[in-house]
Amino acid sequence: MSFTSSIKTLWHKLGSPRWFYQMSGPWVIGFGIAALVLLGVGAVWALGFAPPDYQQGNSFRIMYVHVPAAMVAQSIYMSMGVAGLVLFVWRMKLADVAIAACLPLGMVLTALALFSGGVWGKPTWGTWWEWDGRTVSTLVLLFLFIGIYALREAIEDAGLKARASALVAMIGTINIPIIKYSVEWWHTLHQPASFTLTEKPAMPPEMYLPLLVMVLGMYAFAGHNIISRMRNQILVRESRTHWVREAMATGG
């Protein structure tokens, strides 16, 4: 077998719902345990042990839940955009499963980022909401998640449903750099990024280490939740196949 054909077989395997289902059982458990430990340790650290901000006092602890929710929501949207591209180029069924599985958590985490942002803003700047670049582009992100969800509910035909949601998912990725650079383009209320995974943080380690733990915990939770939803979706779509019946009979 030549190199390209073995790459092709691997790609086919990756796109096969059955292969994904059979491989992903341990991933779900791993992500679940990681999420539980990281979010548990991170929350205790953030609430009781991280030093208060010299300007904002203890309301600054809201950052430890606000930033992870916002970061992971944006990453989930980007994954949906990539899945949309994969669906368009290779017509991979698993990509549509992934888009469907990303929607619920992406939606609630975006809503959560907006909510915790408001709750942080009230004692810090005296307002729950401000029409500022970052808040508006995050609101657009929420509407994109809701829009794709509604689109999927409205379209009956499975093929059309997959293509339409993949297209909107791809187009909507334009919004992600807008969210990212909004704090630099419009110097309004929202403070600049407190944290990125790639740059050296401005905060002291006793402040950013609990944030890092919370961010990783939120990513692990997303891994657990999205892969679990993908597995459920696969069972529904393949419910008539022999392998699903066999897996269910043995409790897999």
Binding site: S59, L112, F115, V119
Partner: peptide
């Protein structure tokens, strides 16, 4: 939470509820 208890606990409560 230094007088910010309502806000801090609201944010954490909502997060873990979600």
């Amino acid at each position: 939470m230094g007088g910010h208890g309502l806000y801090v606990w609201l944010a954490y409560g909502a997060t873990f509820l979600v």
